[in-house]
Amino acid sequence: MMRSLFFSILSVLILSSSAAFAQERHISPVTPTTNKILPPEKKKGGFFHSFVTGDTVPSDSALRADSLQRAKRVIYPLMSGITIGVNVFDPILQAFKQSYGGVDFSAEISLWNRLFPTVEIGMGRANSSPEDMNFTYKTSLTPYAKIGANYNFLYSKIPDYKAMFGFRLGYSKFTYDITNITPTAGYWNETGTFDITNQHSHALWGELLFAVRAKIIGNVSMGWSVRYRMMFKCKDNYNSSPWYIPGYGARGSRVYGTFSIFYTLPLSKSHWPKFPPPDNSDGSNPPLPPPEKTAK
C-alpha cells in the first residue's frame, strides 16, 4: 500500500517537473510562411504570351518577357545628340563623268536615339552635252532644301550603328538654259541652231529612304542611303520640260543614293544607357547587357 502511494507521488512529481521545464524553454519567433515552398511568381500576360508565341514552356516565355522588359527600359534622353553631315555621293559620281549633281549638308537631332528630324540643304548644278544628242543643258548652281525624319530601328543599341527608314520633302526653284540645239535636218533638209534660254521652274518632291550608318572613329561616322523619289509637282514651260532638278537629280530617275560623312555632338551623355566596351577580338559585336542607368 505504501509502496504504491510512493510511486504515485513520484510519478506526479516527475510529470509536474517536466511540465515546468517545458514552460521555461526559449522559442525563436518565426513567421508562419517560413519553410514554405512558394510557387513561381505569375507574370501578367504569361498565358497570352505563350498562346501567341506558341511557346509550350512557360518558364522560357517568362524569361523572354523579362528580357524584353529589360530591353524596353533602354531609353536615351530626349535630346541625345546633334549630327551634321555632308553627302559626297554626287561628287563621287561626277568623278565618274556624271554631268550633273552637287553637294548637300544635313543637320539632325537625335530624339531618344530613335527619331531623327532632319534638314538637308544643298546646291546643285548641271552642264550636260550628251553624246549623240543635239543640245547642251545648263543649270547654274542652285540651292535646294529638304525636310524629313528618320526612324532608327537600333534605338536600344549603342548609337555607333544605325539602320533607319525615313522620308524627305524637297523643294527647289531654279533656272535653266538649253543651248546649241541642232535639230535633225529631216525630210525638208532644214539646218540651223537655236537656243531655249531663261527657263524658270520649281519642283516639289518626296523621298522614301533606307539608311545605314556606322561609326568610323570618335564622333565621326559614315553612312549610305537608298532613296525612292516621287515627283509631286514640277512646272513645265511652253518650250521645255526641266530635265535636271537641283536636289532631285535627273527627272527620269526614281532611285537614287547618298553617301555621307557625319559628325555627332553627343548631348546629355551622362544619362545615356551604359554599355561595356566592345570586345571585338573575335569580330563580333558586344552583347546587349542590362542597362545600369536610364533616363528619368
Partner: peptide
C-alpha cells in the same frame, strides 16, 4: 512651229 526640249534622252526639236 516652236522649239521644245523634251528630255535628255529624246533631245530638243520643233
Amino acid at each position: 512651229p516652236y522649239p521644245y526640249f523634251v528630255s535628255a534622252e529624246c533631245g530638243a526639236m520643233y
